[in-house]
Nucleic acid binder design. Structure first.
Length: 214
DNA sequence: CATGGGATTGACT
DNA sequence: GTCAATCCCATGC
């Protein structure tokens, strides 16, 4: 059976923008964080496959939303499917996807990508050649993709930063799970999720090196 | 209004 | 392994 274009019915374009809908994010953040592994973050001509995420929820003190609604945390309590971008250590912009229904403060931190498109631009912005080092950290990937604070509160389905479903044919094995990186509060919660990829940030979770080798 | 502390990174001992 | 860079914002006076 062959698809035929008809007047008033333009054929679907392969590769057309198919960002994840808000409903994808409107569920428990501990479900969304592993589900985002293998999905694609796109900004301008640059894109990468998500290989590492962390979950944050207002019920635990490592989450910015734990203190309640402020000017800074307002977006975390807003509608799911928006970007929460904040500045870390005065230098780096970190990208999160707001999750759970409106009124709940929760987000998934995107910690690492496997470079997929726009590698030349990434190399220029990062001043680095090695593909495994371009997006292997939450501050690195925003620099590589050219994402800044202006992306805060934008819609991840229709705005400048988009997250798209997993690529066809790309299978994500059972994620490696471990404690979150670089936090002092609620550091024991195993809310970090990693795919088997050399682009995961350091320290690598136990078992990653072995699974990469084999 | 002053101050202190980061969901990090890269350079260096 | 240690350490500084650098800015936003929450908190306290």
């Amino acid at each position: 059976m062959t698809a035929r274009a008809r007047p008033g019915r333009p054929p679907a374009r392969p590769g057309a923008s198919v960002a994840l809908p808000a409903a994808f994010y409107a569920r428990p953040v501990l479900e969304v964080a592993p589900a985002l592994l293998g999905c694609v973050v796109r900004h301008g001509d640059a894109a990468g496959v998500i290989v590492e995420t962390e979950a944050y929820h207002d019920s635990e003190p490592a989450c910015h939303a734990h203190i309640g609604r402020t000017a800074r945390t307002h977006v975390l309590f807003g509608p799911p499917g928006r970007a929460y971008v904040y500045r870390s250590y005065g230098i780096h912009a970190l990208l999160n996807a707001v999750c759970e229904p409106e009124g709940v403060g929760a987000a998934v931190l995107i910690r690492a990508l496997e470079p997929l498109a726009g590698l030349d631009g990434m190399r220029a912005r990062r001043g680095l050649d090695d593909p495994a080092g371009l997006c292997s950290g939450p501050g690195k990937l925003t620099q590589a993709l050219g994402i800044g604070m202006e992306g805060n509160a934008t819609d991840l389905a229709t705005g400048p930063i988009r997250i798209e479903p997993r690529l066809d044919g790309r299978l994500i094995e059972a994620p490696l799970v471990g404690p979150r990186i670089g936090i002092t509060k609620a550091a024991e919660l195993p809310w970090r999720f990693c795919a088997v990829s050399r682009s995961v940030s350091r320290p690598w979770p136990p078992g990653l090196r072995d699974r990469l080798g084999g």
